[in-house]
Design a protein around this nucleic acid. Structure first.
Lengths: 109, 109
DNA sequence: AGATTATATGTCAGATCCGGCATATCAACA
DNA sequence: TGTTGATATGCCGGATCTGACATATAATCT
């Protein structure tokens, strides 16, 4: 993984330890983070497709605008739980959800 | 949803409030719980297929046997996060994971 | 420029979840 | 029957996550 990408992740609160530790990032950790980012992106798409503001969505979820922002940013302080709950609240179907999860991230050029 | 099923869920720690509230269980809540139970069942299958005891798996996950038991039981005190992390640790692929999520629960007879 | 609306960032107290321990239940055997 | 190995249940202190609030930074207007 590239330094650029690393910095982007760390900026969002992922404490990844030393570079060695980072390079040794286990497959499941990597898969977990990628999955989360994918769900985060999907949440944003879904919200925008419905012409909702973050505040609107927050109200729908009985949460706050700031947390929605963090969800969409894929911050480390947001759990898969919250992301998936939110997608479900937006009415995503199991089929759509599974499609998001199936899609692997594009490999680096 | 049937009373039998309700009791089964409540026994696992789901506080579902009054019957009215339960009957009014929103779609996303229901979907969330079903999803969790599906992942829980998958975890057990995967572990058994590899001939691991709960204690073995716990060690692999740096967790405890009791938590693994709770995961597989789909207790409310277990998050999707932990379930999915565990499945990833067992090496489940995105494709398999997505298949689990896609599969809707069998409708009541 | 200033005003308005949307999004992002920082912080924190309370809620939830976690690992670990003790102990209970169960199953398969001698 | 009692012993052994596996799984389940109850509990708790500490860790993590959450909603909420304040505030900062866009972005889009007049």
């Amino acid at each position: 993984m590239r330094d650029v990408k690393r910095r982007r992740l760390e900026a969002k609160g992922w404490k990844l330890g030393s570079t060695q530790e980072f390079l040794g990032l286990s497959d499941e950790e990597a898969a977990y983070i990628e999955l989360k980012l994918r769900l985060a992106a999907t949440l944003r798409q879904l919200r925008q497709r419905r012409n909702l503001t973050q505040a609107d969505l927050a109200k729908l979820l009985r949460s706050s605008q700031s947390r929605v922002a963090k969800m969409e940013a894929g911050e480390s302080s947001v759990s898969l739980d919250l992301l998936i709950r939110s997608l479900l609240a937006l009415g995503i179907s199991n089929t759509e959800l599974s499609r998001v999860i199936a899609r692997s991230p594009a490999p680096a050029a």
